[in-house]
């Protein structure tokens, strides 16, 4: 469904040039739950931004990103807009800032329904309520403003918003950072469940290998703009090949051992 071929993203800033993503190739199949694991600076966020066509102007992009056959990089902005949210949507890192402060939650959802799904008025409102219930939120949340919600609630609401137009691909960028452990688990369970019920493909971006290993059916490890290794969770955990993967796995076990005393 998504075929990334030899993608390079080059930033120019203050006279320096950085390749945030350097010649990576990746395939995402329909219905898969892929975990993109890497530390900050590994290029994973840049990759997400590139998938939505939201890279800042002046950024060089080379290679191809083929979504259902069409190259996202070469698309016009208007075509891109049709693609966004209807096909590919994003649950952003730090959902705290992703809502417009002066708009009610329901307005956020209704708006994308108006623009992309052609639903208006009462239809849209009912749909918004349903979406929020699907992610485990009380329907009353829709009348609230973003600042009234707790971290966990905002994350769920962001997921509901991301699913509003029934996209084929969901990008979840660090959806569990800054949330406490119980909520983390709930969110992951939610994503898993939704994937099955809506036949969604999900790319989960995180720095937390064990977390990704728990829910994803495939892991892609990134470091410094390149793909270090890919494989199933059990493959990577039991038999890491790349030195970076080895480090991550080692770290994972060390943490586990620390917890177990």
């Amino acid at each position: 469904m998504l075929d990334i071929r030899d993608l390079t993203v080059r930033y120019h800033s203050m006279g320096r040039t950085t390749d945030a993503v350097n010649g990576i190739s990746l395939r995402i199949d329909k219905g898969s739950f892929t975990g993109l694991v890497g530390e900050s600076g590994s290029g994973k966020s840049t990759l997400m931004t590139a998938l939505l066509g939201l890279l800042p102007p002046g950024t060089d992009v080379m290679g191809q990103i083929l979504y259902k056959g069409a190259d996202i990089i070469r698309m016009q902005e208007s075509e891109m807009r049709d693609l966004r949210w209807k096909e590919i949507s994003l649950v952003p890192q730090g959902a705290q800032n992703s809502f417009t402060p002066v708009m009610k939650i329901k307005r956020h959802i209704e708006e994308v329904l108006n623009v992309h799904s052609g639903k208006f008025g009462e239809d849209a409102e009912k749909e918004a309520a349903r979406l929020l219930e699907d992610v485990g939120l009380d329907a009353g949340i829709k009348e609230r403003y973003p600042h009234e919600l707790s971290g966990g609630q905002k994350q769920r609401a962001a997921i509901a918003l991301a699913l509003a137009c029934s996209p084929a691909l969901l990008l979840a960028d660090e959806p569990t950072t800054a949330l406490d452990v119980i909520i983390q688990a709930e969110i992951l369970e939610l994503l898993s469940g939704l994937r099955k019920s809506k036949n969604l493909s999900i790319i989960l971006v995180t720095h937390d290998l064990p977390l990704a290993a728990m829910v994803c059916d495939r892991l892609v490890v990134m470091k410094d703009g390149i793909i270090a290794e890919t494989g199933t969770p059990s493959e990577l955990v039991n038999d890491p090949r790349h030195p970076h993967t080895k480090d991550l796995v080692r770290e994972m076990f060390w943490q586990r051992d620390k917890k177990n005393g």
């Binding site: 952003p92 002066v102 708006e111 994308v112």
Partner: peptide
């Protein structure tokens, strides 16, 4: 701000983003 980027990510037109989200927020 992040929420403006997100509004764009949601495929909203530039006009909507600028006036409906950015400007709406600076009204207060």
């Amino acid at each position: 701000e992040d929420f403006v980027l997100m509004a764009r990510a949601r495929g909203l037109s530039e006009n909507r983003v600028v006036y409906g989200h950015a400007f709406r927020t600076i009204l207060p």
